[in-house]
Amino acid sequence: MDKEILKEIFLLILEVIKAFCEMLWEKIKGFFRLLWDRFFGVADISSPERGEVQEWGDTGEDTWPVTSKESFVRTEESLPPKERKGMADTPAIPELPEDYGDNRIVLMVRDTGCLFAYWELRKEVLDNILNTLGSMAHSAKMVLRIYDVTDVIFNGNNAHTYFDIEVTGGTRSWYIHTGKPNRSFCADIGFLTPNGTFRLIARSNPVITPRAGVSEVVDEAWMSIEALYEGIGVPEGFGSSESVFERVCKGWEEIQKESVSSPEASRVLPVLKK
């Protein structure tokens, strides 16, 4: 009986020693892993944590700019597929050209009340204009001048209204909040002096913001599309019932707010996975 107890105690001590050794071994392993990560930057891949897997390909490094053109010379045969190692061997992405040698401003519509402009200006053009300003050059500010050109063929002087936005700090794009749906706009970028002189550097394309509500126009023309595809337009019929329309219009704002469309929810499949 005593022997049995002694045996039990002995086994118990063995278990404790074993557990202690295992703990120690884990600590040592952890320490070496830390060292490894520190010096070789390899992440602990055994982490079971679920999270955003932010990773991407390191494709096409053979196509990035290099000093000699010969380096581009590769054939399909010389490039067997290789195993992808994740972020670790990702090459630097070459930056896109800073400038294309243009002197221009482009205006885009974002929504009913917001435009986006980007521009690229040539230094010699800027210098020439500043020269013409003489002593006022140093106090001239660069501004975006946004014109409301609805229903006019804009010649620089016939806009309904305009407003200026000072653009500083070498910025090359701007979001312009007009808050005006269904209107046409054009943007100039130029220098404005304290006495109000405006010198144009570049003029944008005109744009039209979309309508933010139902059309006031209720005239109805009807067309047979089949006939049109045979080359004959047949507008016919007139009507005035708006009941269906009014019904379906109700709550259109709601749909926009809710964004029930959410194409973003399923397109590009795993992008939104938690």
Partner: peptide, 27 residues
Amino acid sequence: ETHGILFASPRPKYGVYAPIVTPSGIA
């Protein structure tokens, strides 16, 4: 999208419950 039709001009008689024909003749 719904409001692309609802905000069309002239105002579509049937809303989104019938097609409209664009000026070029596409439904």
